[in-house]
Nucleic acid binder design. Structure first.
Length: 578
RNA sequence: GUUCUCGUAGCUCAGUAGGAUAGAGCAACAGUUUCCUAAACUGUGGGUCGUGGGUUCGAUUCCCGCCGAGAACACCA
């Protein structure tokens, strides 16, 4: 069974064409007036102009033809010329059973056609554990990757390890200082300014001590070794933190390795050969009054020719490469690994970097690669309603670990996914627990838990779950409220498609919330009228109900999995305080 | 100053191929437990969709100006 909307669209399009009208799209969509229709088409309005007839006249014309179709049970023309139609119950039944046929795959599609796509996200500097500031982009990137894979892309989740810059030296120096400390040095001293004061470097020092003893004391050649060891362990730390948030990566690419393999030099050479570089002086930046600015000649990339606002430094005046240079090489590397489609997830604070990177990739791949950069707004932190700033110097980083002590990982994850990535959001650290209680994840999980609860009851009464052959919703004999639920369930694949295409996991989150609400409402209605889902007196009705329950369970599970949230089979009772 | 993102209920946010009467949650108020889990449900109040133009049959949605919020702007990553 195909996507209902697609099916209707082509069917209506055929009718329109048969009537002699010229259109590309039948403009069929889910109805936003459920009391009038299941689906609607707006096609008569734009047609009116070209056909020189009134929209209602055209709509009536089309409606008359549609009425003959067996998959449509009722058509009407309303308002200025909307064509409203209800689908035949048999079509709903057929479409519905697809949920069971597809099972865990329900909601999937193949708009990605199995094409390779690389999603790079998080890519935090390997100098410490993850803090809250990293979490939004990390969770967002992971959810986008899951969405893309659900719609049929061959997704690789990648982490770019910035293990080449100065910050890694600082890390190694910090570890070395702690290493010396473990041998009784620096008694009574505080770790010097400019090094990382965090406790997380101590275990790294300890592990080196355990492995090598005092062999690195009083030597000058420790730096490279300490760098390697530190990065290794920091990455482990980061991976562990990410895993707690439900994130795993497929590939880690090291900047250092790229540099050492000569990939960056090669890219510079390639740019040189393509005449993309020149020696020049950049104009003084406007706005901010930079005092230490001096006109220097550098090797620049003609980024402006490829859509950027200005040209960019590739080799500094002293001949060294910038971060941008190796990042270009990195993206070329991805391209060479066969990824012609790439998505980068950046924090909005890197927004100024987007144009130059796109320009570079466009220039170097002759526009063969599509690089899509999704910006994720930075989370502004608050504590008791007042802005809270994290700073290295103050050492007041709020770690992902700290947050997860206060709040369930799934709740945190969904909190980050219910808002669109480009909304600015604030996160109140003091209210974390409070917010946790109101988290929509519980609303959704509770709906799922209720479905399991019904199954348990059924099993208790009948000793087994209903057989596949007894599953049937019988749309024709279902109530209004059930129709709403059934229709909504069948929207899943469409919602996932739109969410994937727009890189907007919050659309799926919102959908799951809505569908949970429809179910909760249905539940209470039944409780009030005495219509329980499981009724020993009425096996036929019970099997019908169970069909609905099983389908809903599948939909919620598939949706939650796509967001990377663990579906729960039951809720822990929350203990009443006060 | 330039570029990017945002501005929807008191608060937090949905509304994404332009459609008919703009929606949730929280907060306020009034109700619903002999029952498959009340972390739930039902109802009430609350809006010039920042603002002024434009495009069109039709704009919260697309385009431009203005106001307001956030971020970025050579030689950091």
């Amino acid at each position: 069974m195909m996507n209902i909307k697609e099916f209707l669209n082509t069917q209506v399009l055929d009718v329109i064409k048969a009537l002699g009208y010229e259109v590309k799209d039948a403009l069929v969509s889910r109805s936003n007036r459920p009391e009038l229709s299941d689906y609607q088409s707006n096609v008569a309005m734009p047609l009116a102009k070209v056909a020189h007839k009134s929209p209602r006249e055209i709509a009536a014309h089309i409606a008359a033809e549609l009425e003959k179709k067996d998959f449509i049970s009722k058509v009407s023309v309303d308002g200025p010329g909307f064509i409203n139609f209800r689908l035949s119950p048999s079509l709903w039944d057929k479409a519905f059973m697809d949920i069971f046929v597809q099972g865990d795959e329900f909601g999937s599609s193949d708009i990605g056609k199995g094409e390779k796509i690389n999603v790079e996200f998080l890519s935090a500097n390997p100098t410490g554990p993850l803090h809250v500031g990293h979490s939004r982009g990390a969770i967002f990137g992971d959810a986008v990757a899951r969405l893309l894979s659900k719609v049929g892309y061959d997704v690789t989740k990648e982490y770019y390890v910035n293990d080449f810059g100065k910050q890694v030296d600082v890390l190694a120096e910090s570890v070395y200082w702690r290493y010396e400390e473990l041998f009784g040095h620096h008694v009574g001293e505080k770790i010097p300014e400019g090094r990382y004061p965090g406790d997380y470097v101590i275990p790294v020092a300890q592990s080196i001590k355990d492995l090598d003893g005092d062999k690195w004391l009083n030597r000058t050649d420790w730096l490279e070794y300490f760098k390697t060891k530190s990065i290794e362990q920091m990455l482990k730390l980061i991976q562990a933190d990410a895993a707690k948030l439900g994130i795993q990566f497929d590939v880690f690419t090291s900047e250092k390795a790229l540099v050492e393999a000569g990939a960056v030099d090669k890219t510079v050479q390639q740019m040189q050969d393509m005449n993309l570089l020149y020696r020049g002086v950049l104009p003084k930046p406007k706005g901010e009054e930079t005092e230490d600015w001096a006109p220097v000649e550098q090797t620049l990339f003609r980024a402006k020719d490829f859509g950027d606002d200005g040209d960019r430094v590739i080799l500094r005046s002293d001949g060294t490469k910038t971060y941008f240079t190796s990042d270009i090489a990195y993206h070329v590397d991805k391209f060479n690994r066969g990824f012609h489609q790439m998505i980068d997830i950046f924090g909005a604070d890197h927004g100024g970097y987007v144009k130059r990177l796109k320009a570079a990739i466009k220039a170097l791949t002759n526009a063969q690669a599509s690089l899509d950069i999704a910006l994720c707004q930075v989370v502004s932190l608050q504590k008791d309603g007042k802005p809270f700033r994290m700073s290295k110097r103050a050492g007041n980083f709020v770690l992902v670990d700290d947050i997860l002590d206060e709040i369930d990982a799934d709740a945190f994850r969904l909190f980050m996914l219910t808002k669109s990535a480009d909304s600015q959001m604030s996160f109140d650290l003091a209210k974390t627990k409070e917010q946790s209680k109101d988290n929509p994840v519980f609303y959704i999980q509770y709906a799922l838990a209720r479905t399991y609860s019904v199954l348990n009851t059924y099993e208790k009464m009948f000793g087994t779950l209903p057989a596949q052959k007894d599953l049937n919703v019988n749309y024709a004999e279902s109530s209004e409220a059930e129709h709403v639920l059934i229709q909504k369930m069948l929207d899943l694949s469409h919602v996932i498609e739109v969410a994937a295409q727009n890189k907007a996991p919050h659309l799926l989150a919102g959908y799951l919330y809505e569908i949970a609400g429809v179910f909760h409402s249905l539940w209470t209605q039944g409780a009030k009228s005495g219509h329980r889902f499981v009724d020993v007196e009425d096996i036929v009705q019970t099997n019908k109900n169970l069909t609905l329950i099983l389908a809903l369970q599948q939909v919620l599970k598939n949706g939650l999995n796509t967001l990377g949230i663990n579906p729960k089979t039951k809720m822990e009772r929350v203990e009443e305080t006060d």
